[in-house]
């Protein structure tokens, strides 16, 4: 104890300097370790260990019974995914991609446009914001449930009444392609119906993020641009949009991750086929009839992981590089 006390002055100086571990006297050190260690331990154990576990298990044919049954099968699961389950896999991959592109071109741009409109000192802007944002607080599962009963009900849903021409329309069951890519793949009509419901929720999310960003745009820049003769579109493109870069990055990440994570609404609507996404394929190998196929499920999970890895790395380096620079200067 006595020696620890004696170290204090120099230790105290070291904390503020350099990047060495902060040095504390006796008790404080353990407090510090516990504060970092316990939460990190839980996070690593339940998030990162399983992630690495998925990658490892994807090279095995484990059925989830005993550890001693784990046998290494190399790339067999991947091979099967690309041959035997080719149709399911590529349709799911297409659906994820369609969802991603659709989210960007549809609700993301629309949400940005809503934010831009609401930023023009609109009367009752709070009310509009609340309306557009309310769907965002609902889970996609309940969004699916709601749309199923109100909008897409085959016999008397609102969509049927408005666009059905007096005939029942099976919005969520129609597997025929709205747009087809070749004979086997395409965007099915029931998937398109789900996309609309997802868009309803996504647009408000994006709107809130951009509204916050737009508030921080310097008005004098915009004025200067308009004095220089720029029209509204030019001002937006050349002045406003570039200053929104941090928000753009966040929105891009959120949209990509949402597109890869999508699960609830598709699961809850339980439409027969053609609406599967990768997350559903992963889970199908765990629950229900296909249950217990840990190896193949993990292979789907690993593919999903590789797809989002690039974005995660890009975002994290982007963020912490700028933080580092900020801290150093």
């Amino acid at each position: 104890m006595a020696t620890a006390e004696a170290d204090v002055p120099t230790a105290a100086l070291k904390v503020e300097r350099g990047k060495k571990a902060p040095q504390f006297k006796g008790r404080d050190r353990w407090v510090f370790y516990a504060m970092v260690g316990i939460p990190t331990g839980l996070h690593v154990l339940l998030v990162w260990v399983p992630t690495v576990g998925s990658i490892f298990l994807s090279f095995t044919d484990w059925k989830g019974i005993r550890f001693s049954d784990i046998t290494w099968v190399g790339l067999r699961n991947y091979n099967q995914i690309f041959t035997v389950f080719e149709k399911d896999f590529f349709q799911a991959l297409i659906n994820n991609t369609v969802l991603l592109v659709f989210l960007f071109l549809g609700p993301t741009l629309f949400g940005m446009f809503l934010a831009y409109s609401l930023d023009k000192s609109i009367k009752g802007t709070r009310l509009y914001q609340s309306v557009f944002y309310t769907p965002v607080v609902l889970s996609l599962a309940v969004v699916g449930f709601m749309w199923q009963s109100v909008i897409y009900s085959t016999e008397n849903g609102l969509a049927t009444q408005l666009f059905g021409g007096g005939e029942p329309v099976d919005w969520l069951g129609n597997q025929s392609f709205l747009i087809s890519f070749g004979d086997t793949y395409g965007i099915s009509k029931n998937f398109a119906a789900i996309l609309i419901a997802i868009a309803w929720r996504h647009a408000g999310y994006i709107m809130v993020l951009y509204l916050a960003g737009l508030k921080s745009v310097d008005n004098s820049l915009k004025e200067a641009a308009s004095i220089d003769g720029a029209n509204e579109w030019q001002t937006f493109r050349l002045v406003t949009f570039p200053t929104l870069k941090p928000i753009n990055v966040v929105v891009a990440v959120i949209t990509v991750i949402e597109a890869l994570r999508a699960f609830d609404i598709i699961f809850v609507l339980n439409t027969p086929r053609k609406t599967e996404v990768l997350s559903i394929l992963t889970t199908n190998n765990l629950l229900g009839e296909g249950g217990g196929n840990v190896g193949r499920g993990s292979a789907y999970a690993t593919i999903l992981f590789l797809l989002c890895l690039g974005f995660v790395i890009w975002y994290v380096t982007n963020h912490y590089k700028s933080t580092e620079e900020g801290a150093e200067s």
Binding site: V15, E16, G18, K19, K20, A21, P22, F32, V36, T40, H43, V44, L46, V47, W48, V49, P50, T51, G53, S54, L57, G64, V253, I257, L260, R261, F263, L278, S279, T282, T283, N285, L286, V294, G297, S298, Y300, A301, T302, L304, F305, C308, F311, V312, I313, Y315, V316, H319, Y320, T323, E324
Partner: peptide
């Protein structure tokens, strides 16, 4: 505090939050 691994810990948590849940689920289950 400024210490050797603080950015590492932040990156760990930030990246963990961006993973799709389905990546974790098989081993977690």
């Amino acid at each position: 505090y400024s210490w050797k691994f603080n950015i590492f810990f932040l990156v760990l948590f930030t990246a963990g939050n961006l993973l799709p849940q389905q990546i974790i689920i098989q081993p977690l289950f």
